[in-house]
């Protein structure tokens, strides 16, 4: 299990290639990449604030819950903070399991929980200034299915 919170970019291809090696009982690997989306067409950049210390602990707890619940052979979460440009990778998760259903479900669980239980806050900067991204009720509702 690996959790990384970092300002630096990461190489999604290299992370995927290096993930889940060596386990003979691994039959499925699911990877997900989150990218900075520009809904307005005018996004200059996104700034992600986080809570150093709590962020790592909160993600590790979520990842450990996923590992135990779906008997994952391995799990990886990388999440960036700081200034990001449209199209840049924000975060990724990877899960390795015996079967694909567990790998897919665990990845969705991780995404749902990272959205509203890991202490990150997104701010969008455009031509009219800066605005904090509001949390969506849908994000909170998504947790109910787990």
């Amino acid at each position: 299990m690996q959790v990384r919170v970092q300002a630096e970019p990461f190489d999604y291809g290299a992370e995927c290639a290096g993930f889940g090696d060596g386990g003979r009982d691994v039959g499925a690997v699911v990877t997900f990449l989150g990218v900075v989306r520009d809904d307005s067409g005018q996004l200059a950049r996104m700034e992600i604030e986080h809570y150093p210390g709590m962020t790592e602990k909160a993600i590790a707890a979520i990842a450990e819950e996923a590992r135990a619940r779906w008997s994952l052979a391995d799990v990886l979460v990388v999440h960036r903070h700081g200034a990001l440009m449209p199209g840049e990778p924000i975060m990724m998760v990877a899960t390795a399991a015996r079967h694909r259903v567990a790998a897919f479900e665990a990845a969705e669980f991780l995404m749902d929980y990272l959205k509203s239980r890991a202490p990150f806050w997104k701010k969008e900067i455009g031509p009219d200034g800066a605005a904090w991204v509001a949390a969506k009720d849908d994000d909170e509702d998504a947790l109910a299915r787990w």
Partner: peptide, 26 residues
Amino acid sequence: DQQLADFSAPLDGVREVAFFPPMTGG
């Protein structure tokens, strides 16, 4: 102390309290 809590929670022994809006990670 870096764990989500309720507003009714006691502060006994707590060293660090953080206030923030709902999180928007992922």
